[in-house]
Nucleic acid binder design. Sequence first.
DNA 1: CTGTTAGCGCGTTCAT
DNA 2: ATGAACGCGCTAACAG
Lengths: 342, 342
Amino acid sequence: MNDFSAAQRSRVTMLDVAEHAGVSKASVSRFIGDDRALLSDAIARRIEQAIAELGYRPNQMARGLKRGRTRLIGMLVADIRNPYSIAVMHGVETACRAHGYSLVVCNTDRDDEQERQHLALLRSYNIEGLIVNTLGHHRAELDELKREMPLVLVDRKVEGLDSDMVGLNNPQAVEMALAHLERRGYRNVLLVTEPYDGTSSRIERVASFQAQIAQRPELTGSVLETGDAFAQHVEHFLNTPADGPKALFCANGVAALTCTRALREIGCRLFEDVGLIALDDLDWYPLVGSGITALAQPTEAIGARAFECLLKRLRGDAEAARNVDFAPVLVERGSTHGFRGD
Amino acid sequence: MNDFSAAQRSRVTMLDVAEHAGVSKASVSRFIGDDRALLSDAIARRIEQAIAELGYRPNQMARGLKRGRTRLIGMLVADIRNPYSIAVMHGVETACRAHGYSLVVCNTDRDDEQERQHLALLRSYNIEGLIVNTLGHHRAELDELKREMPLVLVDRKVEGLDSDMVGLNNPQAVEMALAHLERRGYRNVLLVTEPYDGTSSRIERVASFQAQIAQRPELTGSVLETGDAFAQHVEHFLNTPADGPKALFCANGVAALTCTRALREIGCRLFEDVGLIALDDLDWYPLVGSGITALAQPTEAIGARAFECLLKRLRGDAEAARNVDFAPVLVERGSTHGFRGD
DNA sequence: CTGTTAGCGCGTTCAT
DNA sequence: ATGAACGCGCTAACAG
């Protein structure tokens, strides 16, 4: 059997190809790179054949070392198990590949120390740009990185970090949710969010909610964070007499999961006793009760756009930091059909 | 504003540190590496300080180039949006980090051409080992890689590739499912699977199912692939008179999703008209109808084990290829409570 | 068009 | 215990 513990598994190198083809390394390099035009057909053919026969693959490490261009993009994700992150990541990766870049993803598991380590790691691998979807503690590391390469924030802003940012138009999302609920006859809305924890998108959604509720005389609203005794709090909301039908508004997919779980625990009928609209549109939304109405985020587009921002910067764009806000898409299902207003 | 289009963003290098500390590069190298013991305290301290002041980070590309050890593990995933893959990947990544390795994940989106490109990519970045969770077409590339580095298969075997393999004990999983269904009083079981498509785990599950059904006089069974007119086929199964209560057995999480969707489309009551047990245990299983009974895969453990296999090989283990089979865990929910037999 | 040369940042002999 | 010199695989000048 092979012994892989040997540090260097002797791979075929550019020199091997050159000798096999009877040319210089430079010619092989030109063939590999974008200078193939400078080669005579005869030599090009010989090199091509040598590469095929030897199964040569250029060593990207060496290339990167020499050129300073690794064609690597890094992405820092707070929670890889969150479907939103996955979906965005998928969008980023597709865009990367379309432009000849590769994506290195690091998951922090919402842990600050891991964030620090991963940032160091990405830096040590000479990535050319970074997409960040975390809380961004460790400002020091982030600042260093920002000095060395372009950086794009996704979904969550990092306080004081002046970077491009792409995410959801949160005020608009809240507006769409409330307009829909009001139209459907709901009057009393409970916004359910994960603990803010410094996450800008959560904070924005709650702030928009409160501002807009104040502007809508038809509606009353309150806010509840998931956490201890969450189900009891929901139950209390449901049992409190109010001036009209009640609905829950989940600020993201995780909140929707927690919330639905709680409603079942309480023994609530889905969704006759209470309406529900949720941000994100997960696979299982249609399967619960009469189906959960969603405000889908265009995650694929968000990811693609994040990469495009990076690419622009890599190509020299030095304009002021931009904000790109995407609009959500309303997907109506049974959970907001309880009380028809039209 | 900065201009990142400049190829080489001048980063602080080992030489900078050496000069700043008034020592040689070799000493810095020793400090960085595992030879710190060879340094006098005085010099070590000066280097440490210089590193801190300059914010020096060793360049992994250069290290990898020189030592032939990149501390990089590659993982090839067929479908990054499949929760199973994510969960396993999380396990792998955690194990990697615990041993000082980093994980580079490539998603093929079930596309053969992308598989080929990603394999070439991983190879070009000098990964030290590879974890594969795809169909493994492109045997040529895989064989080359296998010659250069250890390789571990996850969930799906690749025909003719003699590698370590870690996954679920499929016969046992089927056994547990059928035993549970039988105990609960179900007599007529429909196995729902995604199209085989050469996926070994799917084939094994179906084969085990058919073999075991033949061994159980109490049960009758049949198999259905998801796809065109799937809902109609399910409906037909439900409407066909049988000798006892009916149940569906979904061979994985995706099948469970498709299946549940179909049942709702048909207007089936979940789960009074039919029982359901599904492999994998996804977030939303508890939320559908009376909850879906699951055979959870220990995904975290599978991922961790896959990495450990790799590590063993990297450390020189040259034994014959091993198979590691994990047992699933039964999680009972309402979907199999329709007909109590005990 | 092609080959020669000199590094990229680092680890590793060798000396000392 | 420390430093000088060489080379990992490759690209980018510069010659020819």
